[in-house]
Design a protein around this nucleic acid. Structure first.
Lengths: 158, 158
DNA sequence: TATTGTTATACTCTATAACTATA
DNA sequence: TATAGTTATAGAGTATAACAATA
């Protein structure tokens, strides 16, 4: 106990210097915390952030090619194949091979897939609440806006 | 070519909906981009973000216990062992077993380790430049400040 | 008994290339 | 030839538990 306390105290005295102003470092720490929050809140259904996001995007874009979704979410083709297999096995996703290009795979949600997305929608989006505990609502909105710009999701400041 | 172009066009039309306001999603995308920038800029020396950060912290806190550094950087003990082995093999880090507690390992940089950190310091920190291309300097500072607060590195707004 | 770090195992995500089937 | 997706393999990072040495 005393030793454990000593560790914590030592940890707190660790000097980090300028890396605490490094965007890369801050993004990593923030993402680790966000993932923790995700699993704490949603582990119930055994879904992973990337899987839930994929289902979400398939739901919004039914019939889209597997590769398009993979590129948009920065998922590598090899990984995407396995992810889709899991979603198909879970009964959430349907694979359709179009006649005009039988190399490609088009994805859509099953009824169960839609239910799943809908059921977890609130929890997934309300991660905001947990994640933003240390920020005021206005600051949180500002952070989201800045990240969207940083990432290229918005071309110009409105 | 025509097909490849078609893919890009299709990708751009993908609807993402409310996840683009999800902090978790934005943080993941931002971090992927930051890592890309890191490897584009620094791949020269074959260093990885986590390894460079560890060297940096060891340099600022010579003699610190391996476990303390691992906890501070959210590196799991098993992984930390391998990371330290690589750094020792590379000649950047020295392991010292203190007499008063021979279970623990205290780390410090070798001269080569210091040189390495110093040599890549600018490139590592100036990642900012590449990462922040889409933001003005003021906005970038604001983003860093908000992330620091989000992450708990700053208790109160100054 | 508890703690520090190591080893071993397994699983996820990533990286890469070889492969198939289409086009 | 090029493309879409798959398979196979290897690596990094993580999670977990069992372990040795020390306290």
């Amino acid at each position: 106990m005393t030793k454990a306390l000593a560790n914590v105290l030592e940890d707190e005295r660790i000097e980090l210097g300028e890396i605490t102003s490094s965007l890369g470092f801050l993004l990593r720490v923030a993402q680790l915390q966000a993932f923790d929050a995700f699993f704490t809140t949603l582990a119930v259904d055994g879904l992973k952030p990337g899987e839930y996001t994929a289902l979400w995007v398939i739901g919004l874009n039914p019939g889209l090619r597997q590769g398009s979704i993979a590129r948009t979410l920065s998922i590598k083709p090899a990984h995407m194949t396995k992810l889709v297999q899991r979603m198909v096995d879970a009964g959430y996703v349907l694979r359709k091979i179009p006649e005009n290009d039988r190399r490609s795979v088009r994805l859509e949600l099953t009824a169960a897939g839609h239910d799943f997305v809908e059921k977890n929608r609130g929890a997934f989006l309300s991660l905001h609440g947990a994640e933003r505990a240390r920020l005021s609502p206005a600051e949180a909105d500002q952070l989201v806006a800045l990240l969207r710009r940083l990432v290229g999701l918005e071309e110009k400041n409105t």
